[in-house]
Amino acid sequence: MAFDQDAVRRTAHLARMALPQEEVPAVAGQLEKIMTMVEALRAIPTEGVMPMAHPLDLEQALRPDQIANADQRQRLMASAPAAEHGLFLVPKVIE
């Protein structure tokens, strides 16, 4: 398979990663190698095999609907890179 530079750019966009153009060829080469390794899976016969999402054959436990958290805004926002009036700030969101 060919992991070309376009695929790298498309994927980097989905992952919101500002990959500089000069890094793209090298990254494409590395991803190509990884995907080639992974490609080996295709040859394994798996017809009728149940996909395994999780090691535990358990069911989801449910939590009682009781308020368990007090206001801890100050502590939770202590590491915020930008905040004002109890809000996290980001460059304007354009809808």
Binding site: D65, Q66, I67, A68, R73, L76, G86
Partner: peptide, 19 residues
Amino acid sequence: TKIFCGCSTAFGAEPNSHT
């Protein structure tokens, strides 16, 4: 409370105080 944590769902609280 919220679907995945024990924070209140009450409307109109101070911003980020129910987190």
